[in-house]
Design a protein around this nucleic acid. Sequence first.
DNA 1: CCGAATTGTTTTAAGCATAAAATGATTCCA
DNA 2: TGGAATCATTTTATGCTTAAAACAATTCGG
Lengths: 172, 172
Amino acid sequence: MPAVSGCINMLDSETKAVETPEDHAEELRLWLRLLTCTTLIEGEVRGRLRQRFDVTLPRFDLMAQLDKAPDGMTLSDVSKRMMVSNGNVTGLVERLVESGHLDRRTSETDRRVQVIRLTKLGRAEFRRMAAEHETWIADLFADLTPKDVRELMRLLAKTKASAQKSAARRRP
Amino acid sequence: MPAVSGCINMLDSETKAVETPEDHAEELRLWLRLLTCTTLIEGEVRGRLRQRFDVTLPRFDLMAQLDKAPDGMTLSDVSKRMMVSNGNVTGLVERLVESGHLDRRTSETDRRVQVIRLTKLGRAEFRRMAAEHETWIADLFADLTPKDVRELMRLLAKTKASAQKSAARRRP
DNA sequence: CCGAATTGTTTTAAGCATAAAATGATTCCA
DNA sequence: TGGAATCATTTTATGCTTAAAACAATTCGG
């Protein structure tokens, strides 16, 4: 590297930050680490759900959404909440209705809309799974102090906001 | 709630922390937030890869692993690194060999082993994609200060270690 | 040596996931 | 009022993903 450009960079770095054309290696590493953590935990939860309850993670997630909505949700709501495609929800719901965990009916007021709810069976099974699930999560995060947890919550909130802003820039 | 048990809990909370039989709501919220962040960013990256380069995220991830290993990797290595199942890699590799991005050969010394490498085409295309990919990530994390990034890195490292420990407890 | 584990990969069956196009219902507004 | 736009969902085509079983090659221990 020519000495001159090195100097320019050094001067820049005093005023603002390192400003080499592209120095985003740190963010990239952060993203990979975030992804690793999530994949690790998700895999662990998936395996335990399968072993203990013979249920898949997507099914569990869907039931978790419905457990929070006693009056039911539309498929679109579910799709937005779970951040998955519409078509995905259609199939997932189909299987859970089939197995008796979900009740599905067409809205009275808008015949485009399908409203789904947990059945009695579905709610009972979900509650049973959720109780144990919570202990798994607690165990997976066991080495974090309460302060760590608070700090992570704060930083991830900031991360989420940043990512949403960036996404919105591309699709306004 | 009876007043007595309320008092007991309050006393406990002074010495150590709230110790109701199960109070893991914070960890649960943290997990959901972590998952949300990852899903959000992953979806954004997936969409941009598809739009700009007509490539899927798993293909990109596999090529990223191989770019770091000029001498190639075995399928098992790839599978461990990517934290996906063996069978998954088999199919992924098949399609990338088919499209001319990967070269695959049986190891000279162990005929069970398949060694895969990026082809010239594969490497060139990956480099092109990776450069742009890095700017997307930088943009997605743009609102985090360098200090935020460092702090997140540290806390996620701790999280990863905690989760690995917990996973190891179940499968020693 | 040789059979029993182990290791690396593939196959199988089922389910999950996406994007894009299609379908059907509602709303908007000229 | 009637057509266009929008909205909710489903369908289609393709690809990803997993767990478990099957297969094949190697290593290990007696």
